[in-house]
Amino acid sequence: MDYLLQQLLNGIQLGTVYALIALGYTMVYGIIRLINFAHADIFMIGVYTSFFTATWKKIPFPVVIIISMAVCAALGVLMELLAYRPLRHKPRLSALITALGVSLFLENFAALPFIFGPEYRNFPELIRMKRYVLWEAHDLAVSNIFLLNLGIVAVLLLGLFYLIHKTMIGKQMRAVSYDKVTASLLGIHVDRVVSFTFLLGGALAGASGMLYGLTYRSIQSPYLGIWPGWKAFIAAVIGGIGSIPGAVLGSYLMGISEVYANSIDSTLGFGMAFVILIIVLIVRPRGLLGEKIQEKI
């Protein structure tokens, strides 16, 4: 029982990392129906950006996260501009294959010895870990880093929700995702809205990269984005690709069930993602919170 509760908190922790990545997949899919496989590598760049800014000078934590978000936002915008925009009106498969190519490029480029290099690194201890006992009888405790994760994800999600629903650019994003042609007739600069979506997705992946480093403290290699990326993508599909609340829900489901599966046997975690995916897709093909697929020509 005690152990299960503690694992629930660990699952929430992992879900937070996935959620911030999954949002980028789902928003980009919502706006241009592209599964941006290279999104996982934006997250990886976020981890390294945080690492280098944090080790370079003793930059305080809030500045590190802002730099990581800014670098990843810029990378997202650049990726769309150079790789995907020229293919916008080509068959969708071209963009999908390009996304795989961009992903391989970023991973292997980053692994070059004069870029990030392939070696393992330790993420610096930006914040000294403290434990707060919640429930002494059951030995349940949370760390300040866990609370910081939750706080940051709450702020980012509220900000995102406000942006999408209350601001003009958010309304434009929803309009463009529904019908680009009519949006352009109303004077909406569709390309700019698409860029902005990549900017948002990138910034959130950058925040995730920072939190990943801060929490898990280890940087395996420039290929570290692959698995969190896949799981976040699957979480977005489970939640209903294109749905923002769905991506968050799917991510927490994924994080929690992965941690529980791992606690039974440490090799079960990987498989768990697919088990949930298959079950959800059989029961509800559009995902938990996904809308009916409306294809517009």
Binding site: K171, R174, A175, D179, I188, E291
Partner: peptide
């Protein structure tokens, strides 16, 4: 835009 409210549909037109 079916996914937006009536008011939001109108507001979008102010872009032009």
């Amino acid at each position: 835009f079916y996914n937006l409210s009536v008011m939001e549909n109108l507001e979008l037109a102010t872009t032009a």
